[in-house]
């Protein structure tokens, strides 16, 4: 079994990456479920995955959800089997990191649990696949005629959202901030402009303040939503959202549910670690002056505090 989800290609599109990771994980799980001791195995796997790609949370988020589902299924079965011990509410308030479903002995054998879990995985997988479309369903409620939308970098979810609005005959304009070190905004702008004929302005993220007064909404994707409601998003987001706050422009964050993470932002918590990639995108390797005299950091993520965000749009 592969535990390293390779990060060799430099994650040009974070969101895609997370999606692929999560999808790949589900596949692996389907195969691996033949083993016993599912829960313990899942927890171990989650840990290994986290270690393998410390800055990627999508896969371990997925596992947390799965653990939760299994526990619920188990408890539900138990309940039917032994109605006397109905001390569990049918739908316990869901917390991703909760493990307390009362004192349940998970080592007990329960019939038909396996097929139920497999079904749950299939559901999860279907949900994953349709998450982008589901979010886009809401597009026309949020994008109005003559809107000026600002977005950062490239996000598949945001792209779908905008395209959906365009399909619903909304006329609007998009400003895309480029966002280093991968400058994915360029790709996004080209895509919107050429393929979907949406009017697009491309600009450096550092210059966004100057146009913010004109913007009617900021719509962004994110890499992870942290437990406090803050974001771990593409580098450059924080200053842009501060500018939005200054002009009181509403900020919409589009997030499939697998982006929800139980981790809190804290400088010591390695789980939300930033990722530093090769400085090559910022400075040329052949540039002797810089190579010999400076250290170059190429960070991929920003932390955005929750108070800068107006609205989250999920897929369920």
């Amino acid at each position: 079994m592969t535990t390293t989800i390779s990060t060799a290609d430099g994650e040009k599109v974070m969101e895609d990456k997370a999606y692929i990771e999560a999808a790949a994980l589900l596949q692996i799980l389907e195969i691996s479920l033949k083993r016993g001791e599912v829960l313990r195995w899942l927890k171990n796997t989650s840990e290994r995955l986290t270690n393998a790609a410390i800055s990627e949370s999508a896969s371990s988020n997925m596992i947390h959800r799965l653990i939760k589902i299994i526990q619920e299924e188990f408890a539900a079965k138990k309940k039917i089997e032994n109605s006397a011990s109905s001390n569990l509410p049918a739908h316990a308030p869901s917390r991703l990191d909760s493990t307390e479903l009362g004192i349940v002995d998970f080592t007990e054998e329960v019939p038909d649990l396996r097929s139920d879990i497999l079904n749950a995985i299939l559901d999860l997988s279907a949900e994953l696949e349709s998450s982008g479309e589901n979010i886009a369903e809401d597009a026309e409620k949020h994008i109005h005629q003559q809107d000026v939308i600002l977005t950062v970098g490239k996000s598949r979810t945001v792209e779908k959202f905008l395209v959906k609005a365009k399909a619903k005959k909304r006329r609007f304009e998009v400003i895309v901030a480029t966002c280093g070190p991968f400058y994915t905004g360029r790709e996004m702008a080209a895509q919107l402009k050429n393929r979907y004929k949406i009017p697009v302005t491309l600009m450096e993220d550092t210059g966004v303040f100057s146009v913010m007064s004109r913007v009617s909404k900021v719509i962004i994707g994110t890499h992870t939503i942290l437990a406090n409601g803050g974001l771990k998003a593409i580098a450059g987001c924080h200053p842009i959202l501060l500018a939005a706050k200054h002009y009181n422009v509403p900020v919409l964050v589009l997030a499939p549910i697998y982006k929800l993470s139980p981790d809190y932002p804290s400088s010591n918590n390695v789980k939300i670690a930033n990722r530093f990639v090769s400085p090559e995108n910022l400075v040329k390797y052949e540039d002797l002056q810089v190579m010999n005299n400076a250290h170059v950091y190429a960070t991929v993520f920003d932390y955005v505090p929750p108070e800068l965000i107006t609205l989250f749009i999920f897929n369920m």
Binding site: T3, G10, R48, F276, S278, P279, H295
Partner: peptide
């Protein structure tokens, strides 16, 4: 160490045991 060779950098766990 300055990460030009990313992802072949010390904080990537390649080659090590789980």
């Amino acid at each position: 160490l300055e990460r030009w060779s990313y992802p072949l950098v010390p904080d990537m766990p390649f080659g090590s045991n789980p």
